[in-house]
Amino acid sequence: MNGSSVSADPADPCAPATYRDGVRAGLPLALVVGIFGVSWGVLAGDAGLSVPEALLMSSTTFGASAQFAAVSILANGGGVAAAVVAAVLLNARYGPLALSVAPVIRGNAAWRLLQSHMVIDESWALANRGGGRFDPRLLVGAGVVMYAAWVGGTAAGILAGDLIGDPARFGLDAAFPALFVALLAPQLRKRRPVAAAVLGGTIALALVPFARAGVPIMVASAACLLGLRKR
């Protein structure tokens, strides 16, 4: 997938990105994603998933928190319904994320579906150019390396076992929020994004003690409705 020859979108005032730019932006974080992939693969093996089951789940669900939750629930005898509900709630935010990039996702339906599958928090955040604009090549380039790292990490974890140990020991659980801080900061120069950030953060914090995992972030995304324009 070499997009460096793809012509620029003339409507985009920013310098056009290539798939390679997306790969480059995504690569450092993909390393961290891969390490979490290994630890999920280990957990999946311990929970009784076969190699094909674990690989199928990582390649279709492609959501760390959803997969950790589902497998933990199954391993503790929680049943299919509880596991599915927990995982779907945790992946539900990808609906609005994918919707926000939909205007720049072009091509036929199958290609749009494939591109949409590269949406995770990190690839979406890297593709965001502020002001509600997204670059599809950054999204897909960064998404592909993170996808490869997640599925590859899963394979390594379930086949080779615990190579690395608990990612938290290396502070890697702090890596993703730090990325989001770095990507959020440039957006906080105007009043309305600051208001949306404060409201979103407040809603999420307020709901954590009361709502199931995934719900606080989903509800917090509604803070963007501050920006609805009146007719």
Binding site: G132, F176, L184, R192, G200, L205, A223, C224
Partner: peptide, 19 residues
């Protein structure tokens, strides 16, 4: 359009505080 503009700050902040 205005709501999509504000999705990133709202959601990034929510992800940060929850994580």
């Amino acid at each position: 359009v205005g709501a999509i503009e504000l999705l990133a700050p709202a959601l990034l902040t929510a992800l940060i505080v929850v994580q």
